[in-house]
Nucleic acid binder design. Structure first.
Lengths: 243, 243
DNA sequence: CTGGTGACGTTCGATTTTGAGCATATCCGT
DNA sequence: ACGGATATGCTCAAAATCGAACGTCACCAG
């Protein structure tokens, strides 16, 4: 019984039955329960399964198109891979940054700082990491914008932001004032900056300048965005990651 | 039967039927009643269910009158009745203060300020009021505790807090440091103070002093708590509301 | 008001599951 | 065949889950 076969079988069971048990799988597939556990860990890392005590469930079952076409999930997973255990990370607002949180589930002892209400909520649900939240007014998109002073006491190792507009010439830009101000303040922290960008963000330039592209350390985007604008960014020293 | 399966079943029952009973669930799911109780405790922590004697009800069922045993809902509803339209209100952390939120759904143009993550989340879901959140570290109970400075710019008309300990002689008290400090700071704002108290809070005195009982404007508690300690509070000028 | 019935919280122990480490087995390119 | 990498099985301590027992408390009928 090849590992791939087991993975296919388990994936199918998850899709059809909705829940799998370690003991049952071990018996049906005739392998050691430890092997099934290792399988489930891999499937969880692939975003297919969600492990629970005694077995596993499908992840986001019918909510998402599927792992292969789930751009946001892929970007989130890739971004989470750069976050070391026991580090301090800032997560800004955005749909892509929100997708990072589920993949922080196996990290050890992170300290998460955020100014996004939904990210704070989902991180708190995990009950796994230390969580800080910045104060201010909660905007309709869940972003929290308040006193810029609060950033002065913050020391993080990674800043993860979502790009609205990004190109080599005009740098990182945004269309709205509060997020732009907040992002600008974050660049003053001596931290590594990782930017998550949907492909269309690479073809857009916002009205408000945040930082030159050369100050980014890592750019994570989808593999469908492999085109000339990206190569220019790469020449500026930005590490490009195609998820 | 995996725990997650039971939780799904119970959640579904709550959504469809509206009420679940411990004995019935134990029989249907074929597990010990103690197991069901533990499940309901978890679901209550997740904000899905509200435990009542004999079973549980769905959370946030504001419009329904609810059974007489729904102490938390009654207190929350009574408290919401004192909040005027177009006012600025601060909600502190706690299970009772959380119950106020569903009953703010019909108020007009409130500005809600909170240092509780779950309250911020449920208020944001309503997309109805202006919402501010205080920054700081998020504790396990959802309370956010940070720099006391942040309160200096805050001007509210009503402060709604939950009592851990309260009696006429020893005043409002708490057992933990951060919530006590926060509450003390809130009393410095020139606002009306409303305290929500479970009956057992009136028979408990915490180690940390917050404020004398005479500084409270309104005390909301359950009608099952109509006894001498309450009368003493009334003589200090506190308006007693039995929900 | 009062007693009885059932539910509750707590505690304990038994059982199951888990994670980690280690030894063995299998696969694969040379 | 050989050597390295990967996969698998196994053991064991720790953690999670579950059931049962017991004293206390809430609810309800009279």
């Amino acid at each position: 019984m090849l590992k791939i076969e087991r993975h296919q079988f388990i994936t199918q069971q998850l899709a059809n039955v909705g829940v799998v048990r370690v003991t049952e799988l071990a018996e049906v597939l005739n392998v050691n329960p430890g092997t099934i556990r290792r399988d489930l860990i891999e499937l969880e890392d692939q975003g297919i399964a969600r492990r629970v005590h005694g077995g596993a469930m499908p992840r986001g079952s019918a909510l998402r198109p599927g792992p292969a076409s789930d751009l946001a999930g892929r970007i989130g997973q890739a971004a989470a891979g750069f976050i070391p255990d026991r580090s301090v990370v800032f997560l800004g607002p955005g749909t892509l940054t929100s997708e990072v949180v589920p993949f922080l589930h196996r990290h050890e002892h992170l300290t998460v700082i955020t100014n996004a209400l939904n990210i704070a909520w989902s991180t708190a649900q995990q009950k796994r990491h230390t969580l800080h939240i910045l104060g201010g007014q909660v905007h309709a998109d869940g972003g929290i914008y308040g006193d810029a002073e609060t950033l002065r006491h913050v020391r993080v190792e990674w800043v993860v932001l979502e790009a609205r507009g990004l190109d080599a010439a005009r740098g990182l830009t945004h269309d709205e004032r509060d997020p732009a101000d907040m992002a600008r303040g974050l660049f003053n922290l001596t931290a590594q900056v990782m930017v998550l960008a949907a492909p269309q963000a690479l073809e857009h330039a916002g009205a408000l300048f945040i930082a030159p592209a050369s100050t980014l350390d890592i750019l994570v985007t989808g593999r469908e965005a492999d085109n000339p604008p990206l190569w220019d960014l790469s020449e500026l020293g930005v590490r490009i990651v195609l998820a």
